[in-house]
């Protein structure tokens, strides 16, 4: 029997712990198909792409109503811009879940933890459910937690790189030390990498590039969903680390028990 309770963030129950980014899909209907076929529960959409008055397609119409919409502040270069974009999201789209992205480096797209923490403080106080995208750093994590973040979203590696858990050790520290759910975001290129993040105790994984660029995004989304679930079950099952299972004797301390 599986005993796999859903992830809970701000009172919402999240069954599928694979979160989907939307910015890189070649077609919105394809994206919608991925969301519904794999029963995705959380998607993130950049506010900069939302246009309710669009002559062409409005991206929000492609997100099913029962999905949790988390608007991100892509394009914000400092806390103030992130705050302004978040308020715009609430005003224009009625959205309260905000993934804070503050990036002031267009070359590496690395998040600015200090500005992000500042935005968390202001937006959490205004009642937003705030999920900061961050470089995994213990001090910043503590600050964001104290500022009212609902979850932390550390990057696995550089956005779009597909390099997996380059920041593994530091994410492990956050998992261990933070009481917030840890959602590994960015750089996850393969389902196996997503499973690895879940096996080490992450609460969820977010990806976009790996799925959107796949020849068959539907299958890729399903593969990620299943890998994330498998990783979660492995974590819950508390499987022993390979190599630690068998220990033939006690060469170091056995002498204490010798007659």
């Amino acid at each position: 029997m599986q005993n796999n309770p859903p992830l809970e963030i701000a009172g919402k129950k999240i069954k599928n712990r694979f979160f989907l980014g939307t910015g890189k899909f070649g077609s919105k209907s394809e994206m919608m198909k991925c969301i519904s076929e794999s029963e995705i529960d959380v998607v993130t959409v950049a506010m900069r792409r939302v246009d309710a008055d669009a002559e062409s397609e409005n991206i929000l119409e492609f997100i099913p109503d029962d999905v949790i919409l988390m608007v991100n502040t892509s394009g914000a270069r400092n806390a103030e811009e992130a705050i302004r974009i978040a308020r715009l999201a609430r005003e224009a789209a009625g959205v309260d879940w905000i993934k804070i992205e503050v990036i002031n480096d267009s070359k590496y797209l690395l998040p600015d933890n200090r500005e992000t923490a500042e935005a968390v403080r202001v937006l959490a106080a205004e009642g937003f459910v705030v999920l900061p995208y961050m470089t995994p750093d213990l001090y910043a994590a503590r600050e964001m937690e104290e500022a009212g973040a609902a979850a932390l979203m550390p990057l696995g590696s550089l956005i779009g790189s597909g390099e997996g858990l380059q920041a593994k050790k530091f994410i492990e520290i956050l998992i261990k030390e933070s009481s917030l759910p840890i959602v590994v975001d960015a750089g996850i290129g393969r389902p196996s990498q997503a499973a690895e993040a879940m096996e080490m105790g992450a609460s969820a994984v977010l990806a976009n590039t790996a799925v959107a660029l796949a020849d068959d995004p539907g299958n890729a989304t399903m593969a990620f969903s299943l890998a994330v679930k498998a990783g979660r079950l492995a974590w819950l099952g508390n499987m022993a680390e390979p190599g630690n299972i068998a220990s033939a004797s006690s060469p170091l301390t056995g002498f204490l028990f010798e007659e």
């Binding site: 899909f25 070649g26 077609s27 919105k28 506010m47 900069r48 792409r49 939302v50 246009d51 669009a54 002559e55 062409s56 394009g75 811009e81 302004r84 974009i85 715009l88 224009a92």
Partner: peptide, 12 residues
């Protein structure tokens, strides 16, 4: 296979 993007910034 490209999605045409009309809106890629929301003025703040």
């Amino acid at each position: 296979g490209f999605d045409p993007v009309y809106t890629d910034w929301r003025r703040i």
